[in-house]
Structure formats: C-alpha cells, structure tokens
Nucleic acid binder design. Sequence first.
DNA 1: CTGCTCTTTCCTGATT
DNA 2: AAATCAGGAAAGAGCA
Length: 374
Amino acid sequence: MAGENCEISSIFNNCITLLYPPVQIDAASVGAFTKRDDDELLTITIPGITTGVTADLCTWTQHLPYMWTQQHVLEWISYNIEQNKWDANTIDLTQCEMDGQRLCQLSREDMRISFGGLGDKLYDHLCQLKDWQSPPSANSCASNEYELKLHLPDEKLSDWDLIYDYIENDDDLHSGVKKEKDFVEREFCGERTTDLGYYSDPISPASSESCGSAGVFTGSDLDMEVKPSLVRESLQNDDKSDGASNKRRRGRPRKINCDGPNILETKKNKHSARGTHLWEFIRDILLYPDLNEGLLKWEDRSEGVFKFLRSEAVAQLWGQKKKNVSMTYEKLSRAMRYYYKREILERVDGRRLVYKFGKNSSGWRMGDKESCGL
DNA sequence: CTGCTCTTTCCTGATT
DNA sequence: AAATCAGGAAAGAGCA
C-alpha cells in the first residue's frame, strides 16, 4: 500500500511542483476533480485562490502582467535575473511573493527597495510589457478557482481509480505536498545541488515571439503540443527563396536573425560549461523521477541502461533548453549516437529507444559523487 | 581570429 | 508504412 501511494504521490505531486509558492492542499480543500476519458488529463479545481489561470500551460509571456499569478511573477523575475546576469543570491525571495496586480502597483522606487539594483530593470521591463502585450483571451482569467491539470504518462492511465482514492482518502497527501513544497523551496532558494535549469528556465520570449515561432514552453509544458514543422517549413521556404538551387545545402543552416522592434529580444545566453551536454541532460531527467513525467525510465539502473518513453517530448524539452523549437527525436538521437564513439554511451543492439551509459559518462551510478538521485 | 568541441541539420540506406 | 537506427557530411555556436 505504501508503495502504491508513493507512486501516486509522485504522479500527483508533479503538478504541485508547478505552483510557487506551493499551495497546501488537503482532500477537503479540493473542490472538484474531473476525469476525462478521452485523454490523460486530470483536472483538479481548488476553490478560493484568487487568480484563475491554469497551472500547466500558462506562462507570464501569455498574460498581461496584471493577470500574473505569484508563479508568473517569480518566473518573470527569474527570467530577468538570468537575462541581466544578476546574482540571484542578492534577491530576497520573500519580496517576490506577490501576484501581478500587486506587482503592477509598485513604483520604480518600490522596485528598487525590493530588488535593489535589479529594480530599475524590472520596472522598465514591466512598463514595456504592459504597453506591448496584447490582452489575454477572455477565458484565461475567468474564475477565482485554481485549476491544476496533470498529464499522466500513458502507462499510468490505468491508475485513475488509484488517484481518485488517493486524493479523496489518503492522509499522506498533505505530507506529500509538504515534501514537494520543500523540494520547490530548495530549488528556488538556491540550494540546488545540480543544474536543472531546463526545468526552471522561463523560456526566452525572444526565441518564441520575436521569431514568430510556434509556441511558448515552460519546464512544465512537456505535453504542450507544438508544431516545429511549421517553423522548419518557413525556414526552408526562406532558404529556397534566396537561392538559385531548390535543394537545401547540406549541413546546418545559418540561424535566422530575428531583428525587429521587439522589446523582448534579449542577449544570447552564455552557456555554462557544465550541465548543458545532452547526455547530462538525459542523466538528470533520469535522476529526478519527480520531474521525469514519464519521459525516460531506467531499464537497468546498475548497468546504466535506460529507455526513452516519450522520445519526442524529451526532444522538445532538450530543444526548450537549447532554445530550439525545431528539435526532434531524430536529431537528438543523432547527437546521442555520436556519444558511442566517445564511449559516453554504449550501443544496445536490437532494442529501440534504449541506450546505455558508457565508461566516460558519470554521475548516474548510485553513490556517484555527482549523482544526487532522490 | 583560430581551432576545437559539441551539437544541429540533412541525408541515404537499413532495420524493426 | 512508419518509426527508428546508423553514420557521413557540413555547418553553427560557444569557448579557450
């Protein structure tokens, strides 16, 4: 029973992670939860929370600042910290605990007091956002209920009844949420031990909006449908239009320069030396089962054998990290195959979507110094 | 600026 | 038939 609940807890709490600050939910406070048989979406409605946006798909880029939740505000501040290369340790996180309405009431001076030197930049950016963003759609802020939408990996679809029982009856839910809250606080308060930037990075608006691309991602948007093919199509059309040849040249095409009067355009991020390699990215997903969301699984942990469960979703997440909406599993797998030569990965013959860490990889073994498996 | 590494993109052909 | 694998080729991007 404990194992069963543990598994459900792990699934359920994935969605709680999306909230910051995490809300305390117990069975009594869950107003309604609905199951839709036609897909794997569980919607939990929690009454009494003032803002009415869905937790999974919305990011601050999709709403006017007035409409932001606390999570949006935090993501926006994180984004500005990153873009301005600001030392996050100088920011008092308690000052970030406000929704968009409150944020918009702050004067420049208030911002300076709350955020120090970053305050001016935050204030300027906020002013620009207020002027530039188009109003959100009418239904995006319709109620005073907070909706959590939880996507389940395919193989968990049969667990609906268990989830119902768990939410309704299990006293451990509260402690499960507490555990998740601790985790979120650890992640957001700078105590993280491993770079998991691809989970918390708010997507650069420059990479999505200014290029007219297909979607806005957040770390929680793994299931969001995106259409990279549209982007690729348009890029290819551009290629064709200026050249004599109809056939695309081999090799990687030059990156389109997204010039234009876009206030969200930002400087290119400098890659940190560590944590940005594909194999480390894959490893870290495997090491954090709470964040894995059914993307990958260990086939044989001791041997370092793992399998892609949702190959395209992993590719999208990798693309999100690299600010590349056209990433596909096909391209990702090519990069993976290059690791064979360097013995970072070993071939696993005859098994699709299965890879094995090689002797030049590290950090995935139990007890490895770099491994911080939960 | 150069050279290197690590991808990224495209491609052809094979295998599942 | 479609998805995946395999690996060559070429080029982008970041870094020392």
